[in-house]
Simulated scan of single mutants.
Amino acid sequence: MQTTEAIIFDLGGVLIDWNPSYLFDNLFDDKEKKKHFFENICTPQWNEEQDGGRSLKEGTELLVDLHPEWKEYIEAFYGRWEEMLGGPIHETVDIFRDLKQSGKYRLYALTNWSGELFPIALERYDFLHWFDGRVVSGDEKMRKPFPEFYQLTLNRFDLKPERTLFIDDNLRNVKAAEDLGIQAVRFESPAQLRKDLEARGLI
């Protein structure tokens, strides 16, 4: 069985429930309008630019200039961003706690997250302080799935890819880690993650 010395967690969708629908379901009474908004205006690709270091102000103003008729909704995306946070994914936090208390592994976070918004999460979620180190895309001006972001993390914490396990809910990000020789698990549910970790002999 492969030796694992370090485990890297993604945050959003794995340890923290973040979903724009928590806010926008209250702002849109038309499902098709909401669908159009996320597919054509505040797209995941646009949000990732802020995760990668573009300021929230610049990203917002860019879209308002392009789509002034959507101004209210565009400004709500970051203006009311905290309403998109659904809280901890408690069962995954329990797994994280078990790994931490075992004392067997170094534990890290690698997240695509705006550097302007991450301090809110740090204040809100105590378990973010359990990590041995955190790498936040907005602070580093790079993001998943680009290989240099993973390599930065490996180098910073002196991690060997073949002895490091990466957990992420995004298959694109999982494959990017595997391409660098990092062990990886795609997160689908806390129960599935626990089963995968047990099969690897990690918990």
Rank of each mutant, 00 (worst) to 15 (best):
S137M: 13
D29I: 12
L11S: 07
D65P: 00
K175M: 14
N47R: 12
F149Q: 06
F37M: 11
G86H: 03
A121S: 15
T111R: 03
I89L: 11
K34D: 06
I16Y: 02
R106E: 14
W70H: 04
I203Q: 06
I16M: 09
D29N: 15
F146N: 14
M1E: 10
W81A: 06
G133R: 04
L66A: 15
R172N: 12
F166N: 02
G115D: 00
D158W: 02
Y108V: 03
K195C: 08
F37G: 09
T164E: 09
Q183L: 10
Q50F: 04
P145W: 06
E72H: 10
A199L: 12
K144L: 04
F9G: 09
K31R: 13
G201F: 13
R134V: 15
I8E: 07
L159D: 05
E72R: 13
A6S: 15
P190V: 07
D158A: 14
R97T: 15
R163T: 09
D65I: 00
N47T: 13
E116I: 01
D179Q: 15
I95K: 11
K144M: 02
P119Y: 12
R134Y: 01
F37A: 08
L99Y: 10
W70F: 08
F166S: 03
E5T: 14
E72I: 03
I74A: 10
L159T: 07
L154K: 01
V136Y: 00
I16D: 03
I89D: 01
L154E: 06
L122P: 02
G103K: 10
D132N: 10
I182M: 11
P44D: 06
I7G: 06
E32R: 11
E75F: 01
F96Y: 13
V93I: 13
D168T: 06
S55D: 04
F131M: 14
F37Y: 13
D10G: 02
R134G: 00
R186M: 13
G79R: 07
G133V: 04
F24S: 09
F131C: 05
P88I: 00
I95V: 13
G52K: 11
D168S: 02
A121W: 05
S137Q: 11
E91C: 02
L165I: 07
Y105P: 10
L110F: 07
T60G: 07
D65R: 15
F127S: 02
I203A: 05
S114C: 02
L85W: 10
L99E: 10
I95W: 06
M142F: 00
Y22C: 05
R194L: 13
L197R: 13
E69R: 04
Q101T: 12
L117F: 12
A177V: 07
E140V: 14
E148A: 04
N155V: 06
P20R: 09
E116H: 10
D139A: 04
L27C: 12
K141S: 13
E178C: 06
R194H: 10
E123M: 05
A184L: 09
R156E: 10
G53H: 01
E61S: 12
L27E: 15
E61Q: 14
R134Q: 07
W18G: 01
A176K: 05
E188D: 12
W46P: 00
D196S: 14
R163C: 08
A191Q: 15
R200N: 00
A177S: 08
A199G: 12
L85Y: 11
V135Y: 09
L11Y: 08
L122W: 05
G86S: 05
E5W: 05
F146I: 10
I167K: 02
G86V: 05
G59A: 08
Y73A: 09
L62R: 12
